[in-house]
């Protein structure tokens, strides 16, 4: 079964690769991201988290995107950038190695 794996960007160690299985989705609380190198993972998208309100409508807060999803496509190794911070003031970009088995 594929897994939805949540990771805290601040807790990721650039020296320690994240190991995923094909089909896994990696979820990061971040304002942006990209695949820097490799094709074993793909960027599913950069999202603003919303929710279904008590009246059944979809509610979206006002703020920058705050969720980034990567999907493990095929076995191999990739490097992804994860952007955190305030997109309008100061951001930090960290590179993370992802190994897909």
């Amino acid at each position: 079964m594929s897994r939805l794996i949540e990771a805290q960007p601040a807790a990721l160690n650039p020296a320690l690769p994240v190991t995923l299985q094909v089909g896994d989705v990696l979820r990061l609380a971040a304002s942006g991201g990209r695949v820097r190198e490799g094709s074993s993972v793909e960027l599913l998208g950069i999202f603003t988290e919303g929710l279904v309100g008590t009246d059944g409508t979809v509610l979206t807060p006002l703020g920058a995107p705050n969720t980034v999803l990567f999907r493990a496509r095929v076995p191999g190794q990739s490097t992804v950038d994860v952007v955190t911070g305030d997109p309008w003031r100061s951001t930090r970009s960290n590179s993370v190695t992802v190994v897909v088995t």
């Binding site: 805290q8 008590t54 509610l59 006002l62 703020g63 305030d86």
Partner: peptide
């Protein structure tokens, strides 16, 4: 917690489930 800076808009906050 994580998720950046945001707020729901005006009276929409009354529609946000109370555990969020």
């Amino acid at each position: 917690g994580q998720g950046g800076y945001y707020s729901y808009l005006g009276t929409d906050i009354k529609l946000v489930p109370p555990n969020r």
